[in-house]
């Protein structure tokens, strides 16, 4: 009788092998590269190259998140743009930011996610600025370069121009990425997500 009333459940016993979270890293890397590549093919003026980093950080923690971000850019350097690896530090900062904010439920509602994305954008813009100044002379070749060029033409110094450009453009990009990451996680069966035993997922209403 008990069995008749039992809800049909196909979840099997949880099996959290040690390597499980590490196995997710290559997949997070590929997600970063895939999303970034699709965006660039569609010529949409945002980067979207940290979705995998955000997702893996939420699922598997800080170490896995940093590894995903850094390795994404190293592999991206091999596959697409060999200057990407020099920006790997920004990805590490993104993972750190997401990890600490997620602990405080900063992605639990859409509004909070938007605010977190804006904050992430500002920080990412500031962290990337010295690399853009030193490596690219302030100009990365993207649409944002127009903003930088204008600021430079008005007499602002190069570092300030790049920081202001980043602070203006990055929040939009990073907010989209945070929203997309959360939306994607909400589409994953909750039983899959529970395997990660992640406090971040619990606190942000994802399981």
């Amino acid at each position: 009788m008990e069995q008749e009333n039992e809800k049909i459940s196909f979840s099997s016993t949880l099996y959290p092998p040690t390597q499980f979270k590490l196995a997710l890293i290559p997949l997070g890397i590929a997600l970063n590269l895939a999303v970034g590549t699709i965006i660039s093919i569609l010529k949409i003026p945002i980067y979207m190259d940290a979705v995998g980093t955000i997702i893996v950080t939420l699922l598997a923690g800080l170490g896995a998140g940093i590894a995903t971000g850094v390795l994404s850019f190293i592999i991206g350097g091999v596959l697409t743009n060999p200057v990407l690896p020099y920006f790997a530090g920004t990805q590490a900062v993104i993972a750190i930011y997401v990890y600490f904010l997620a602990k405080h439920a900063a992605f639990s509602t859409t509004f909070k996610t938007i605010l977190s994305g804006i904050g992430l954008g500002v920080i990412a813009g500031i962290v990337s600025a010295p690399i853009i100044v030193y490596l690219f002379g302030g100009i990365t070749g993207s649409g944002r370069s127009l903003i930088t060029a204008y600021l430079l033409a008005t007499g602002k110094n190069i570092l300030k121009s790049v920081i202001l450009t980043g602070a203006a453009a990055e929040p939009i990009d990073k907010t989209f990425q945070c929203l997309l990451a959360i939306w994607l996680l909400k589409g994953v069966p909750k039983s899959f997500l529970r395997r990660f035993k992640s406090l971040s997922l619990e606190r942000n209403n994802l399981i």
Binding site: I8, F10, S11, P189, K190, S191, F192
Partner: peptide
């Protein structure tokens, strides 16, 4: 019918 609300990728 009994599985209408289930996530398809969770099923066998």
């Amino acid at each position: 019918t009994n599985l209408a609300k289930e996530h398809p990728l969770e099923l066998p």
